[in-house]
């Protein structure tokens, strides 16, 4: 757990009292303090070592593939949540768009659209949900928590209605299936690609800069002429589309479209990943790579506990406690970061 690295600093100094190693430990400590991604990455590594040594099957290729698929879907939705959370909002409906988009794709394909077009239509439906979320939040000034809680139920009911509550099977060509998440490699490639793309957008483009400015100082950003409404609506659309994309990728992996898949479970996992990864729910600050690592940590926890035979009942308790512990440490660390940052 992340707590270990805080303890490891003084111990390291005591064991090797040389000036050089002292400097090295100090520098490592400062690096952990200053890089939000580093602490969560360390947590992931410690967990991998722990489960790798306690459960023999943990590092088997089959299990790693399993883990990658699970974490990939969460990470893709989390990338969208990071964008929305940074600009000061939240999207609770992304998990339900995850279930909606594949059905839109399926029905479009049934109606004769080629698969690529059907996928685009699925994403378009997701974008429409994002636009509605953004419009109600920005123009009608309903807090996004409430807006997306409403659309969460709305979409869920809509998906159940158009599907009659029954799962269906998509039948794409092998190329389509393999490209769109049919293999663990494809799934994880999508997740890594999307993570890197949005980290780049966040740090290196005007859109990302204005997203941070909108969440960091909403009034100030508006005063300086940033169209904060446009930024928010845009990020709602991005988040919804990534929710839909994650659903479509999972569809080809599982080769079934379930109207009850995803939902609040995957949405909360995505938001938890973002927050564990260092994105502040108060807006203005966050990292997509951190969210990816957060999704990995949650995936490792879930998978590892299952392997070492923790029962499903106790698992949720442990998971909850782990989230709380990580967050408490995170909050402490950012305090330290803020205090230690002043030179």
């Amino acid at each position: 757990m992340p707590g270990d690295k805080v303890d490891s600093l003084p111990t390291g100094k005591a064991q090797i009292p040389g000036a050089e190693s002292h400097g090295l430990a100090r520098r490592a400590g400062l690096f952990l303090l200053h890089s939000r991604e580093a602490s969560i990455a360390l947590a992931a590594i410690i967990l991998i070592i722990y489960f790798g040594s306690t459960a023999a099957a943990f590092l088997s290729p089959g299990n790693i593939a399993n883990l990658a698929e699970y974490a990939a879907t969460t990470a893709i939705i989390a990338a969208g949540e990071v964008m929305v959370i940074i600009c000061g909002e939240v999207d609770l409906s992304a998990g339900n768009v995850y279930a909606l988009s594949p059905f839109v794709m399926y029905f479009a394909h049934q109606a004769g659209a080629p698969f690529v077009l059907a996928i685009l239509l699925g994403l378009l439906a997701a974008a429409a949900v994002g636009l509605i979320n953004g419009f109600i939040t920005v123009v009608l000034e309903v807090p996004s928590f409430i807006t997306t809680l409403g659309t969460l139920y709305l979409i869920n009911g809509f998906t159940l209605t158009i599907s009659n509550g029954y799962p269906v099977q998509p039948n794409g060509s092998p190329f389509i299936i393999n490209f769109f998440g049919g293999t663990p490699i494809s799934q994880i490639s999508w997740a890594i690609g999307i993570t890197l793309l949005f980290q780049f957008i966040l740090n290196k483009t005007r859109w990302g800069l204005h997203t941070i400015a909108t969440g960091g100082n909403l009034l100030g950003a508006a005063e300086i002429g940033i169209k904060v409404g446009k930024i928010k609506i845009g990020n709602f659309i991005i988040c919804s589309c990534l929710g839909g994309l994650a659903g479509i990728l999972d569809t080809f992996r599982i080769s079934s479209i379930d109207p009850l898949a995803g939902g609040t479970d995957i949405m909360f996992m995505a938001i938890a990943s973002s927050v564990i990864g260092g994105t502040l729910l108060t807006g203005g600050s966050g990292t997509v790579i951190g969210a990816f690592l957060g999704a990995a940590v949650l995936g490792i926890l879930k998978n590892g506990f299952t392997l070492i035979g923790v029962s499903a009942f106790t698992f949720d308790m442990i998971l909850g406690a782990a989230i709380l512990a990580t967050m408490i440490i995170n909050v402490r660390l950012s305090r330290l970061r803020a205090a230690g940052g002043k030179r």
Partner: peptide, 13 residues
Amino acid sequence: EPVYQDLALVNEL
């Protein structure tokens, strides 16, 4: 050019 009281600066940047 306005310089507002809240300065329209973003702390995180």
